[in-house]
């Protein structure tokens, strides 16, 4: 477990997807919700360049999976962090923060207006990680997860409202949509 062996890379052009199985079992162990292969395919196929892997030698030890798209027509260009997992024995070393930063930096390059995600209200570690990057809790989601736990929606604005509106050529963030929930059951 020498820190020197740890490398980071984008999933990007992994046509052969050698890490897919490892990635699935890592997430399956780390997160409470069950995800079908379609969920992974959905993200990796469309936003493989927003997926980053942490490797110890050849072993996958951490991953962040994201997407970036318009939130509703003419809405904000919204980045979404769907899954973030670091193997238990590698936690507390800032790997997750590094992965998230890589993802956010890539989203910034791709002109994201904002980044959002959900996390279990009891997951103090994850909440702290995101809040130390600049995220704010925007709302609480009652019994959001299958296991009955509630979630916080965390939001990071990368552009102000006026910038977002200009960039989108529309009205940017929909103010009436103070709610704008993701169409996903989990993050």
């Amino acid at each position: 477990m020498e820190a020197d062996n740890i490398t980071f890379k984008a999933f990007e052009n992994e046509k052969e997807t050698p890490h897919l199985d490892a990635l699935r079992s890592l997430i399956s162990d780390g997160l409470s919700e069950p995800y079908s292969i379609y969920v992974y395919r959905y993200f990796l196929h469309q936003w493989g360049d927003l997926c980053y892997l942490a490797l110890d030698g050849e072993n996958l030890i951490g991953v962040v999976i994201c997407k970036l798209e318009k939130h509703r027509e003419n809405g904000a260009n919204r980045g979404y962090i769907a899954m973030l997992v670091v193997k238990e024995e590698y936690r507390g070393r800032g790997l997750a923060t590094k992965l998230v930063k890589m993802a956010i930096d890539a989203m910034i390059l791709r002109n994201a207006d904002e980044v959002v995600l959900e996390t279990e209200v009891t997951n103090a570690g994850a909440i702290k990680l995101y809040e130390h990057l600049g995220f704010l809790r925007s709302k609480r989601l009652h019994r959001y997860y299958l296991n009955g736990n509630s979630a916080f929606r965390l939001v990071l604005y990368l552009k102000s409202n006026s910038e977002a509106a200009q960039a989108s050529g529309g009205h940017g963030r929909d103010h009436l949509d103070a709610d704008g929930d993701m169409d996903i059951a989990d993050g």
Binding site: L136, L156, Y157
Partner: peptide
């Protein structure tokens, strides 16, 4: 206040005032 390397206080204020 946590470090908050991303975004700005102005934008965080906008987010808070969104409703």
């Amino acid at each position: 206040t946590p470090p908050q390397p991303y975004s700005t206080d102005v934008m965080r204020y906008e987010l808070r005032m969104k409703p």
